[in-house]
């Protein structure tokens, strides 16, 4: 079956009522262009606060592109049009202070990318840049964020060792700790487990469920088991379009659109 056959205009986006669901972030008609390439077409999604939303879809469907637009990481790489509503503000405008946006919308990347500094320094580096000078406070944050990322017990005696000495899974959890040390509102995760072994993946998933209490998480994943295990909502992306968005259970057991059905049952992707 060719994946181009689906009618891309047919979609089902579950409406999230602002009265019933507290929204963390919302996009309206978000489109992304890389030069001539129209990489992403229609982003009309709402994300509920303190929930995990998975973005799934085949490679090149635009899910990472969409995710990176949310904290303006596509600035200078592509052109993003449309609105990103956050706290009642459209943050996709020139007037917005992107640095502050990124402090409140943190991001974890596909490949672990710790700085080649010590574990402690990895966590407090950006905080110091942000003006936090209080040594005691910084130490507290190091412990708290490493605990949140379920890494504290493994590294508490080696805080001054280079982060590069950690295993891939530990490095990724360090990156999560680094992101939450900034006390963000929303955490964006771009396939955080794709480079990791199953045990590390499981640990990160546990971490995410724990983090959900305080953070809104949006995660791009290739791993459908992962999406069904951890997320409350799932959005299915296809060829630069959002095809379906619903509660995770519904997307996986009773998809409304044929393309979603085929994808989640493993017919392509």
């Amino acid at each position: 079956m060719s994946i181009e056959q689906y009618d891309l205009t047919k979609n089902y986006i579950r409406p999230l009522d602002a009265d019933k669901h507290e929204l963390a972030i919302e996009t309206k008609d978000l489109q992304v262009f890389y030069g001539e390439n129209h990489a992403f077409h229609d982003g009309n999604l709402k994300f509920e606060r303190y929930k995990i939303t998975s973005l799934i879809g085949a490679s090149g469907c635009g899910k990472s592109t969409y995710l990176r637009s949310l904290n303006r990481m596509n600035d200078g790489i592509g052109r993003v049009t449309g609105q990103i509503m956050y706290r009642g503000l459209d943050i996709n405008t020139k007037k917005i202070n992107v640095y502050e946006v990124r402090k409140h919308i943190g991001m974890v990347f596909q490949r672990p990318n710790p700085f080649s500094k010590s574990i402690r320094e990895n966590i407090i580096f950006a905080l110091k840049e942000d003006g936090q000078k209080n040594k005691k406070k910084l130490d507290e944050i190091v412990e708290k964020s490493l605990r949140s990322a379920a890494l504290w017990d493994e590294v508490k005696d080696d805080l001054d060792k280079s982060a590069l000495a950690l295993s891939g899974g530990q490095q990724q959890r360090l990156c999560i700790a680094r992101a939450i040390a900034m006390a963000p509102d929303i955490l964006l995760m771009d396939e955080p487990c794709s480079a990791l072994d199953p045990i590390s993946t499981l640990k990160i998933e546990e971490t995410m469920i724990e983090l959900k209490k305080n953070y809104t998480i949006i995660i791009v994943t290739h791993n459908m088991q992962q999406a069904s295990r951890v997320s409350d909502y799932t959005a299915f992306f296809h060829l630069g379009h959002v095809i379906e968005f619903d509660k995770t259970r519904k997307v996986f057991t009773n998809p409304k659109i044929q393309a979603t059905d085929d994808y989640v049952s493993g017919n392509f992707g």
């Binding site: 990124r102 991001m107 990347f109 950006a126 990156c175």
Partner: peptide, 20 residues
């Protein structure tokens, strides 16, 4: 990846380049 790590933490590009 290093550049993105710095930027995603809300650091300015200038500091990211200089410090990382």
């Amino acid at each position: 990846l290093q550049r993105e790590a710095g930027l995603a933490l809300g650091m300015s590009k200038w500091r990211t380049v200089n410090k990382i």
